[in-house]
Amino acid sequence: MSPVARKKLGKFALNGAGIAVFLFAVFPVYWMVSTAFKPNDQIFTTDFIPFPSPPSLDHVERVFTKGVAGHPIWQFLINSAIVALSTVLIGAVFALLAATAVSRFRFRFRTSFLILLLIVQMVPAEALLIPLFVMARRLGLADQLLGLVVLNVGLTLPFSIWMLRTFVAAVPKELEEAAWIDGASRFSTFWRVLFPLVAPGLVATSIFAFITTWNEFVIALTLIGDQGKYTMPIALKFFVGQRSTDWGAIMAASTLMTIPVLIFFLLVQRRMVSGLVAGAVKG
């Protein structure tokens, strides 16, 4: 084989492998969406039916009208959105203050605090579930969306501070010093100079916290008993348990849960890597 032919063949093989990886990754998601739009006789078959033909909106309509456990799916989407957005808003304030402290000031226990952050962000909700449940019950937060917000703020905060601190550190200190010299107060220096420059980082960090909270399963599973207060993950779990064979509707509900995350994901994909392995990649 001539070198040119070999090179061409190599390129062909590489692109083929690329397409195989693409299909492996995308097919299950595609299958979820396509099942959601298939009429029942194309779902319950031993044949392979690649596309819904013709696409049917029956299942989507059913999850919006009849819904799950007597509640339209709207209810659970709204519950999830309330919990995730409140967690993000409260968490952002705490994270911004703490991130400013660790990246703008040198003080005793700074290193200890950063190491503490690293350790606690690795302790999973699954392990702390029992004491968190007991605590929420004592505070009267069981069966409350507020309880989910409180616990999710705790679980997402260490990573938010860790990620946000690199964004604060990236803003040149000279800008704040210039504002100081011009006679700005500490607060207005923070608010007018630092905050606008850190805002993009704050958005990225918030999207992370949003996705984590939106997907959160085990805390909601133990804390929420009232079906009207289910979040999407728990509604899905209930749905699968209750109507285990209604795959069209189950897939429609899963698709609805996935869409917001997919959109946010594409927005922050680059930071996804840098947030977790930044130091290791740079080094």
């Binding site: 693409f22 979820m32 099942t35 997919l262």
Partner: peptide
């Protein structure tokens, strides 16, 4: 193209992941 594709698998929420594979 491949990165955008694998992003779909990565972004799928864990509850939805489990349900998709249960169905497959």
């Amino acid at each position: 193209f491949v990165i955008v594709g694998v992003m779909a698998a990565w972004a799928t929420p864990p509850p939805a992941q489990a349900i998709i594979w249960k169905w497959l």
